[in-house]
Design a binder for these strands. Sequence first.
DNA 1: ATGAAAGCGCTAACAT
DNA 2: ATGTTAGCGCTTTCAT
Lengths: 340, 340
Amino acid sequence: MKSKITLRDIAKHLKVSVGTVSKALNGNHEISEKTRKRIVNYAKKHRYVPNINAVNLRKESAPAIGLIIPNILNYFFAQVFSGVEMAANERGYNIISCISNESLEKEIATTNTLKNGLISGLLVSLSEETEKQKQTSHFKKFIDMGTPIVMFDRVSTAIQCDKVIVDDFGASYDATEYLIKSGCRKVAAVSILDNLEIGKLRLAGYKKCLEDYNIIIDEKLIVRNFDKTLFTTEIKSLLHNHKVDAILGFEEFAAVNSMVIAKDLGFKIPEDISIIGFTNGMLPQYVTPTITSVSQHGKYIGQKAVQMLINRIEEEHTNIAPFSTEIIKTSLIIRDSTKN
Amino acid sequence: MKSKITLRDIAKHLKVSVGTVSKALNGNHEISEKTRKRIVNYAKKHRYVPNINAVNLRKESAPAIGLIIPNILNYFFAQVFSGVEMAANERGYNIISCISNESLEKEIATTNTLKNGLISGLLVSLSEETEKQKQTSHFKKFIDMGTPIVMFDRVSTAIQCDKVIVDDFGASYDATEYLIKSGCRKVAAVSILDNLEIGKLRLAGYKKCLEDYNIIIDEKLIVRNFDKTLFTTEIKSLLHNHKVDAILGFEEFAAVNSMVIAKDLGFKIPEDISIIGFTNGMLPQYVTPTITSVSQHGKYIGQKAVQMLINRIEEEHTNIAPFSTEIIKTSLIIRDSTKN
DNA sequence: ATGAAAGCGCTAACAT
DNA sequence: ATGTTAGCGCTTTCAT
């Protein structure tokens, strides 16, 4: 048990030098086929595994990427994760992942974990608290050390790096337009994740669309900025006090729960009230009626972000491209919670 | 830009030795308060970050744990992941995660990634293919190297290690009993993930319960071992050809979709057919009617597995405890898809 | 209290 | 084709 055989051990047993063993195991052509085979066989037989810390130290790089996401129980982020994992593996990188759990403190702790040398690049979507407090200085150390960062979905303008974002403004505009075209005039906007930049964009898209269709914006129909536990109360009060014929939910939670509450209150969906929600997870497909949703293409976002990051990692340092922001178009998946 | 300042740099600037700097930064009491402060301040100012590869190499250990899960889009595994992340962080370890995507090949590739020195311990739940082909030799190298493994949920008897499993037999027995006590006699069992050890246990629990209640086991009511794309066809044929008054779904997918199909076919839930499903994710709570579910306490399983693993990692080598298997009890969350 | 030096396991430049 | 050697950045023992 507990072997941990090293290059030296192999070299000693086979009466060759450490350098030869290293070269043989790395497929260097300087080594004769015969010795190579001897060495490779011996290594395999004794289950030699290179010490990755020594390799990384020597090579001054590591084939690993750090990933910080706010919440893995959120389907969108789970999708991103799955895309990241896949794309990174294809290019020979592995993922060191951390969940910030929407907390700034945890996010900072996490950046300390992803220390110097552990990762060659960092993928991050900001925690809710981080965005609220606009505190992003803990990412600066990576940039200082020359470790590239790619931010996705929840990004910060204060950090200079590549970004992958969803066209939240457009998505919201299109969803609102769809509702208006299907005959709705009293479109409410509901959100539980306030203060997030993406929330503001979604709100802006919604407002712009109403304007373009000459519908007066009624701030009373915009419900955000409240405690999640008060959701039911807030929505009930919205539906009681105002004539609403459509709800645009800025998160899956908001859309699905708004529908459940509206149904409970006796409204017919979509006859009385139409619903559209952001994030196309499992719920909208299984709920009754199924909910028309904005698909943000999470997996694709993950893949794209990895590609940008690895390109940056492997980029020649003589020829550095300017930072870019990739905007991913969303699509509206039409289901039964909206009229034609 | 691109500083990557090292101990040597600090030592040179402050005209002290590398050893002194190292000791100061690690809070060694040999160093005078004055020098310590000078060094710490300088390091902070220049954003010194230790090279983790060098530290790990020198210390011959790494504060990281590897995690291999079959599928992050599965709510149960997402829950486990979240528990793992949390518990590991509490004890100062970070997580290097990989998704096997239910593939043996990917799982093997993954074990190669989690090479020697990168991680101090490994947490794994087997991929479907791995279980089917009973090929688990790729885990042996970790055991040989003295890197402990803890398997959870989908475990292998061929590997000697600590394990955390769900009481699948008991869970299935209890669920079946609940159905019988609520007046059902024709209980069907439906599964899409066949050949998994946990599936067999669930089936055994189901059968044992029927026996105990003197209900003859009708193999026609057991639907498994088919392609996922054929799900609808299989369930429709089950409901057409047999009088069924309850369905026990061995996965969330099976339970939720069985219910949807039964509803489409005009059956009333739970009056005509009762439903119980494994895995207590979001879907069973939002679907109409809500589905009575077996909660496997994913987060707790993750935490428990981490604790066992870290205890093993930090264990004195003179005093090695025998391997143990922790069995986590499930609970049945009663909802509207079952009668009283 | 501080410094010097060895060495963790590996790669790669250089020598043979 | 194979060997020798320096050194990656750090910790730690031993000396001063």
